[in-house]
Amino acid sequence: MNGDSLFFTLFAFMACLGAVAVVVSQRMVRMAFWLIISLGSTAALFFLIDADFLGAAQLLIYVGGTLVLLVFAVMLTSSGPYLNIETSPGEIVMAAMLGLLFLFMVVSSQTGIDWNGTNQQMAAANGMTGEISTFDSGSEGNTLRTIGMSLLGLRPDRGAAETGQLHTGYLLPFEIVSVHLLVVLIGAAYLARAKRRRDT
């Protein structure tokens, strides 16, 4: 057991624990708390896997942004302290069974696939000799610049140095997502604007 696997185990366990607790917990704010645990642990997993930018983004956007928003919404919409809307036990049992079924499916697909062979096929199809990752983020330090340039339309991780040719990046999706985000935020602001409450 080395440091990586140790921390991986720790954070993976915390992520799963948080997720289960989110499901089990009935109080909204506690759910939010457990969600933080889960998402934060996921961010830590990202750091572990050398996706540091992604981890930071996860922390900033999910934990710092989305969840604060969620809790805000909880506070705005709760009609009493510690809002608690119970679900009928039957439904919980149903959901649990379905969840287990889904888990079974995921696990079975995970075990059922010949990862090694698939990867070799992929490598062969991409014309690579078996080198797994041409961009070795671990040794190259960070992914920040690579991601940034990919979003700008360059792919330095795809062997631009060898071929002298630039691969297409993610400029268009990036633009689309930006515009989408803008539209969504305007829409959300419009939806959530203060309105006179209808007397019902």
């Binding site: 679900t87 439904e91 149903m94 959901a95 379905l98 969840g99 079924l101 889904f102 499916m105």
Partner: peptide, 12 residues
């Protein structure tokens, strides 16, 4: 919730 369950069942 039932819709979600339908989705899960469908995926499975």
């Amino acid at each position: 919730r039932q819709y979600v369950m339908f989705i899960v069942v469908g995926v499975v």
